[in-house]
Design a protein around this nucleic acid. Structure first.
Lengths: 141, 141
DNA sequence: CCAACTGTAACTGGTAATATTACAGTAACC
DNA sequence: GGTTACTGTAATATTACCAGTTACAGTTGG
């Protein structure tokens, strides 16, 4: 899976956890363990999709603008990592004489298309709010 | 997805399609569009898992030794690409003070563990025999 | 012995992913 | 109005991974 998916999810959970729902790219980067520039890039995508608002300038940063229980991992997957499990490497070749070799790409494609749908429906069942609950549950033990 | 998974599936479908169920690495490689050495490596794994038998020496090659309708993509996934969708990149750090940053790895891990299971159950419903049927269906149109 | 294979390991080159740097633009605050 | 603290974005290392390739030892049939 795409690391940008991870960064997006982690950032949103962090924002959901903060009392004021706000944080700067530097603060998020320290928590995620990556570079602030990457965080800005990822959260820029999330802004364009309406999941966070940003404020530039001093005292600025990112703020969650959707209820954490209304945002699922499927939303984030579609935004940040659609097609991530479909391989970029292709076997066979449609020009080929052999029936197997010439049609494998198409069949393989339909298989992974189904796999994507399967994965999305799984992610559909997990919200940012639930992620936060799970984290709290970890903490207690 | 791992390209070795693709090569494995393609090779097995090809073997299932051949009347005598047998082919050399060179023949398979030409059909898959890759190098014979890669095919030998992949089919070596399949041999170790009991899906094909090999014969070295002149006139040798690979032969399917399981009924195509008994072999599912899930079997191949577990052999060739287990953990393929779980990211190798980790956010957060268990040593961290913050509750979110310190527990994110564990929670993210459980999420992807579930995703793997979901994917496997999808692959469980697709056999090599069905793949071959789908290819034949493509050919007709 | 020779030819045709498999089984492996090692090396190469290209490409994708991550980290880093840099700087223009913007807003708060004194 | 200047300074400080941010975002937005592009460009540039740097690293890691992956497919392709080569090479050669081992095996088998003729």
């Amino acid at each position: 899976m795409n690391s940008e998916f991870i960064i997006a999810v982690h950032s949103l959970v962090l924002l959901a956890h903060k009392p004021d729902g706000m944080a700067s790219s530097e603060e998020i980067a320290a928590n995620v363990c990556t570079h602030p520039a990457r965080v800005r890039k990822v959260l820029g995508f999330l802004r364009k999709n309406g999941y966070v608002t940003t404020r530039e300038g001093s005292g600025g940063g990112y703020r969650l603008c959707i209820d954490p229980s209304d945002m699922t991992l499927a939303d984030i997957y579609r935004t940040m990592a659609a097609g991530a499990i479909t391989p970029n490497w292709c076997s066979g070749n449609p020009e080929m004489d052999c029936m197997v070799g010439s049609n494998m790409q198409e069949v393989m494609n339909s298989v992974f298309c189904g796999a994507e749908k399967q994965l999305e429906s799984y992610f559909q069942g997990i919200t940012i709010g639930q992620m936060l609950s799970r984290i709290k549950a970890c903490q207690k033990t």
